[in-house]
Amino acid sequence: MSSREKILAAIKQHQPEASALPSLTGLSGNMPGTLEAYRKVLEGLGGVLFEIKAESEIPAILAQQYPGLQRVIAASDIQRTWANEDPHLLEDVDMAIVPGQWGVAENGAIWITEEDIHVRVLPFICQHLAIVLPRERLLPTMHEAYEQIGAPQSGFGVFIAGPSKTADIEQSLVLGAHGAKSLVVFVIG
């Protein structure tokens, strides 16, 4: 008998009687899905938020916030030659601008999929990350987020909440572990 059969047989023999799945209603309470709520949490995570009317406002804000950026790439760029190159070559990207699908007010997270970023490693390997999120796409909690996201449409998706960080050394919080060192969220519309 293969390990697979052995394991499955042991589980079948040992697993408890099946119980019903609980309902997920009423878990969100009165959590607000507002921009104010989202901003407060994001700033708590070390992120920065700008309200903009059009994407054209982004370069000026970035230039002011991050003087000296060398390589900036936008996922929405129609050219995006980098999307067909070896992902390792994204190592020198200073700033990546990517679109976000849904924002979650309770924890600052933004849902992003492979289709939005073209190369999976992009929002991690860049030194700094900017996410553009439509204002009407803010939701109160993770429950609403999964309702909206629904069944998986892509091979990879990620919730990103703030810049990468660690507190492994004596619980001292340090922003910029292996992923992006900072995060700017542009709420558009």
Partner: peptide
């Protein structure tokens, strides 16, 4: 409130 990254791996790259 949540970890910075909650990555959903479904298909290989």
């Amino acid at each position: 409130p949540i970890t910075t990254y909650s990555s959903h791996f479904r298909k290989p790259r």
